[in-house]
């Protein structure tokens, strides 16, 4: 599987994400600096990591979404290439318009850093094919701006079209309708606040994140 991890100034989960992709798919992703303007030919997966790109200046993900490489990412997503955005990556995907809505400051104002209970949503996508709908899993979160919001029409459309990938099973950050992750209409772009790449081996305390990459590998490769 040919993949790339996009690296912005301030990304800090890029190496964790690259390790997870390498360990689970068996191929090492290319690390792609945000100033690049093209993606490798025949790419199977674009991964946008967590962190604090551009120090969260202006709005989380706002500056990164306007980076040179993002034009190529948007074009690849339109062609159907799977794009995975985790945490700051989710914020970048909403800021770039690839996913609807916005991620605002957590309702409790605090930075939330702990494992949380999640429920796998009904979205059909390469990213969720390794889980069953309604399955209870746990993944770590670590964010200050994870409070998902969108207008009621958008939320109804997301739910009506079965585009919720993950829901919080407990109160975490005030996200509307407990949304933790969503996919685009075609199902090839996923944005999620929890970190599956941090829970892929028993030594990390669990393996609930592993099946996201396994499912992806099975569908894509």
């Amino acid at each position: 599987m040919k993949s790339a991890v996009i690296v912005f100034p301030g990304s800090n989960c890029d190496r964790d994400l690259a390790v997870a992709i390498r360990e689970i798919t068996g191929s090492t992703p290319q690390m792609l600096w945000h100033r690049e303007t093209t993606l490798p030919d025949g790419i199977d997966l674009i991964a946008i990591p967590g962190g604090f790109s551009y120090g969260d200046y202006l709005r989380s993900g706002a500056m990164a979404a306007r980076s040179p490489i993002m034009q190529a990412v948007v074009e690849a997503a339109d062609r159907g290439v799977p794009v995975l955005g985790i945490c700051n990556g989710f914020q970048i995907l909403t800021e770039s318009g690839l996913l609807p809505g916005a991620l605002m400051r957590n309702a409790g104002l605090g930075f939330v850093c702990r494992d949380v209970a999640l429920c796998v949503g009904e979205a059909r996508s390469p990213f969720t094919s390794g889980y069953s709908v309604g399955e209870a899993i746990r993944l770590p979160v670590a964010h200050h701006d994870g409070n998902y919001t969108a207008d009621p029409e958008t939320l109804d459309r997301l739910e009506g079209e079965g585009r919720i990938a993950f829901r919080y099973a407990e109160d975490v950050n005030g996200s509307v309708r407990s949304i933790a992750g969503i996919v685009n209409a075609r199902g090839n772009v996923l944005g999620m606040m929890p970190h599956p790449e941090r829970l892929i081996e028993p030594a990390q305390g669990g393996t609930d994140g592993r099946r996201l990459f396994e499912g992806l590998l099975e569908t894509v490769a």
Binding site: A62, G101, T149
Partner: peptide, 9 residues
């Protein structure tokens, strides 16, 4: 529209 404000919110 393109940068300074996020017109979603």
């Amino acid at each position: 529209r393109k940068l300074l404000a996020n017109t979603v919110i």
